[in-house]
């Protein structure tokens, strides 16, 4: 993945990660968790906060250590750093939010395999300063969160008739079972990528 054209200013990084190269709908990375944890808004929010924390801290750490890391073991060290922060998140959830930990199940551990984090560490933190790298990690996480929360909003509303666990649709509402199941996230994600791309094409080619 070439990232040479990436802007090096804080606002440029923000715009890039939230929109122009949004990790989910432009780069289509990290969609495993996007399918798995998006049927309830609360779980999605906690998962996203976990990803934002891990990505920001990983980028910061990788950037600080970048001159000391031998090239041969670069990827292994990055993975070690990611795993370290993910386990920290896991320990904190298990100790202080056991119910959420239960609900997220194995997906917290699977943050390690989220390609966005490795992608940002390799593409950005390896070649930029610590502060900007931290910001890049956080904003990439926000880009991830934005798409996931949109998917979760639609899935929880139609699948359970509720938002953040509060019933908002009337009793008569018949929940759409498909929305609760993982395949619905596939359809929704596909639609989001379609809309995102269409809007971006319009921006690039003004009539």
């Amino acid at each position: 993945m070439s990232d040479t054209a990436a802007p090096k200013t804080a606002s440029g990084v923000l715009a890039n990660n939230l929109w122009h190269s949004n990790p989910i709908f432009m780069q289509v990375l990290g969609i495993c968790s996007a399918l798995a944890v998006t049927n309830l808004l609360v779980n999605t929010a906690i998962m996203s906060v976990g990803v934002i924390f891990v990505m920001g801290m990983t980028n910061l750490t990788v950037s600080l250590l970048k001159h000391a890391i031998p090239r041969k073991v670069r990827m292994i060290v990055q993975t070690l750093i990611i795993a370290f922060y993910v386990i920290i998140v896991d320990i904190v959830l298990r100790a202080y939010l056991p119910d959420i930990h239960e609900a997220l199940g194995p997906y917290v551990g699977l943050i390690i395999t989220n390609c966005i984090i490795m992608g940002r560490a390799e593409a950005f933190a390896q070649s930029n300063g610590p502060v900007l790298s931290f910001w890049d990690g956080v904003t990439s996480g926000l880009g991830y969160m934005g798409v996931l929360m949109t998917v979760a909003l639609i899935r929880e509303l139609f699948g359970f008739g509720s938002l953040f666990g509060f019933t908002v649709l009337p009793e008569l509402w018949e929940p759409w079972i498909i929305m609760v199941m993982p395949p619905s996230a596939f359809f929704l994600l596909g639609i989001i990528i379609w809309i995102g791309k269409a809007l971006m094409n319009r921006e690039e080619a003004p009539a």
């Binding site: 250590l65 000391a68 890391i69 031998p70 090239r71 041969k72 073991v73 292994i76 070690l80």
Partner: peptide, 14 residues
């Protein structure tokens, strides 16, 4: 920094 010894020591410490 690319030597085998440095790599091993660095990985161990980290």
């Amino acid at each position: 920094k690319q030597s085998a010894i440095y790599t091993i020591v660095f990985t161990f410490i980290v």
